[in-house]
């Protein structure tokens, strides 16, 4: 049984009553206990929507979400609240995600106050102190307000709040993209250490290839609300099959500034998210696209034992 299982999930937002935004289109994913599944994609690819759907912070239009075998969508409000102790989220904007009127100790302690109200306050306090230490914050930070902390410290508070109830799943919604480069590595290291220590499964959402390569066990590449390629990250990075994945990897800047950049592989702009796409979502931008890409539905299909690609000619040489 996988930790988190999303099956054929779609999400459509209605904008102004007339336009529909197709944020997610028939996405299926699993996260296993203790592993990191990285979801990578450009802005507007639906990856943040996916993270919120996984925790039922928003409701999917279609599809099902199972957490540790429990159908999350069937849960009543009270049951869902209870389950939140086990499935947590860390946000992209550390400051905005912390209540500016609460002290760090109260922010970190709130999940305990909610989920273990019968635990003596002293025990909860010592648990909070331990977690604050665990995420690398000095004890005196506990009395500070979020506004008095640096970005990295704020994100550590966000991490502490997420792990205080010992969850088995954490959704990380671009947890480092708003941080300085130097702080970013520390936070990623902390997240990796915590995962080893606590055995949590991570759904790691990011647009940054370098970060994803560093943290992930498996990877799901998203484009325009669909997963276009999944597989173990080493193999996807070494030998990408989908033209979009190839373009994405090729677009990552090399470490050596003198190295020549490959020519851009995709032409044009992504199709508007308000358009319902039949066929391949990349059609029109794809260097190897042909007529049958729009004539038939192009869905994620197994490529080999542990990989899947949504392309009718995966690994086409022209791409």
């Amino acid at each position: 049984m996988s930790l988190l299982e999303l099956t054929n999930v779609s999400k459509e937002f209605s904008v102004g009553g007339t336009t529909t935004v197709y944020a997610l289109d028939d996405v299926s994913l699993t996260v296993n206990a203790g592993e990191t599944l990285a979801v990578i994609g450009e802005s507007g690819s639906g990856k943040s929507t996916l993270g919120r759907l996984a925790l039922r912070l928003i409701e999917p239009t279609r599809g099902s979400v199972h957490f540790q075998g429990t159908d999350m969508l069937a849960l009543p409000a009270a049951g869902l609240r209870q389950l939140r102790a086990k499935a947590q989220i860390i946000f992209q904007e550390p400051f905005e995600s912390l209540n500016p009127r609460m002290r760090v100790a109260d922010i970190v302690g709130e999940p305990l106050a909610i989920h273990q109200p019968k635990t003596p306050a002293a025990d909860r306090r010592s648990r909070v102190a331990r977690v604050i230490d665990q995420v690398g914050l000095a004890p005196e930070m506990a009395r500070r307000f979020p506004g008095e902390l640096s970005g990295g410290q704020q994100q550590r508070v966000g991490i502490a709040r997420a792990i205080v109830t010992e969850p088995s799943l954490i959704v990380l919604d671009e947890p480092t993209s708003s941080l300085d480069l130097s702080v970013r590595a520390q936070i990623l290291q902390l997240l990796a250490d915590l995962q080893t220590e606590l055995g949590m499964g991570y759904l790691f959402i990011s647009h940054d290839i370098h970060t994803v390569r560093y943290v992930s066990d498996r990877i799901a590449v998203m484009y325009r609300g669909r997963v276009v390629e999944t597989g173990p990250s080493e193999r996807v990075f070494a030998d990408p099959q989908h033209p979009y994945t190839r373009a994405l990897l090729a677009a990552a800047l090399p470490v050596d500034p003198d190295q020549e950049l490959p020519p851009a592989r995709l032409v044009g702009d992504p199709v508007s998210p308000t358009e319902k796409v039949s066929g391949c979502v990349l059609y029109g931008r794809c260097p190897v696209g042909e007529d049958r890409c729009v004539q038939n539905e192009v869905r994620l299909t197994p490529f080999d034992a542990d990989r899947a690609v949504a392309c009718i000619k995966p690994g086409a040489p022209g791409s």
């Binding site: 609240r81 389950l83 102790a85 209540n99």
Partner: peptide, 10 residues
């Protein structure tokens, strides 16, 4: 975001 976070912790 912090209200969303509050919902997320139950």
């Amino acid at each position: 975001r912090y209200v969303e976070a509050a919902h997320a912790i139950g």
